[in-house]
């Protein structure tokens, strides 16, 4: 660019000379011609400037549009990250039924209400708030020896023992009922896990739904693998719990045996000696 301005400054006398020789026939004052030429030159410079400005204007507009597009792309992306709809429809995000199953298990008191003879035990769970007192009450109800109580006669001793035996039985029964329920919940969970894994897999490898890096995808695939494995584990665990339910405790076995003997005695007592 430097050469241009150099040319302009240095060429001024030269230009005057050329103009002078070309328009010799029509005499125009030298000053006027110089003025006209320099104005014409300025005009062409201005035209050039206008051209440049147009180009710059166009480029700037393009830039603005692209910046605008990038910004909206970023916003899109952000709102995309906030979006929960695509995952909300998945079974994985359905925690409701699992929570329901767990909630049903928690209510110890409710289970105890099934037993009329364990009323006091039920109360021990319900009314007391202090943890220490609660556990002490439970101990009193379950453990057959109490240094605070001295029984004078066999009858009251026996009835006390029996009350505690009943309490223990009630607690055992409650726990095994809860095991049955838990087993059910576990199998339910096992089936859910299979469904969830299947669903995730479809979304992950076939659909274009999820936006995530490959690391996240890999992680998720291994999660699905774990789900399927967990499903089998849960099934086995559930059956194990039910097996526990199907083997009555020694306490219950004893009680049953005693009842059986009582029945046999009763039958023997009412059977006539001679059937002739």
């Amino acid at each position: 660019m430097k050469w241009k301005s150099y040319f302009c400054l240095a060429g001024l006398p030269l230009l005057c000379l050329v103009n002078h020789t070309l328009s010799a026939q029509k005499v125009i004052p030298v000053e006027d011609r110089m003025l006209r030429d320099s104005i014409a030159e300025n005009a062409s410079r201005s035209t050039k400037q206008a051209g440049y400005l147009t180009v710059i204007n166009r480029l700037t507009k393009n830039t603005r549009d692209e910046v605008e597009a990038t910004r909206s792309l970023q916003y899109d992306y952000q709102s995309h990250l906030r979006r929960t709809l695509s995952t909300a429809a998945l079974g994985v995000s359905d925690q409701q039924s699992q929570q329901q199953a767990v909630l049903q298990l928690i209510h110890t008191g409710q289970h105890l209400q099934d037993y009329g003879f364990a009323q006091s035990l039920n109360e021990a769970y319900h009314t007391l708030e202090e943890p220490l007192e609660k556990s002490r009450r439970l101990y009193d109800h379950l453990v057959p020896y109490d240094e605070m109580k001295v029984f004078s006669d066999l009858i009251s001793f026996n009835s006390y023992q029996q009350a505690q035996l009943r309490n223990m039985l009630a607690l055992e029964e409650m726990s095994s009922r809860r095991k049955a329920q838990l087993a059910q919940a576990l199998r339910q969970l096992a089936q859910q896990k299979i469904r969830q894994a299947d669903e995730l897999k479809t979304k992950l490898t076939e659909g274009q739904t999820f936006s995530m890096t490959e690391a996240e995808r890999l992680k998720l695939l291994s999660t699905m693998q774990q789900y399927l494995l967990a499903s089998q584990q849960l099934n086995a665990q559930s059956d194990e719990l039910l097996e526990q339910v199907s083997r009555p405790s020694s306490l219950k076995e004893q009680a049953l045996e005693r009842y059986k003997k009582a029945q046999i005695r009763k039958t023997a007592a009412t059977t006539p000696l001679f059937n002739f």
Binding site: S5, C8, R45, Q49
Partner: peptide, 8 residues
Amino acid sequence: GSTLDKQL
């Protein structure tokens, strides 16, 4: 004119 050149 020279100013215009600079602007250019």
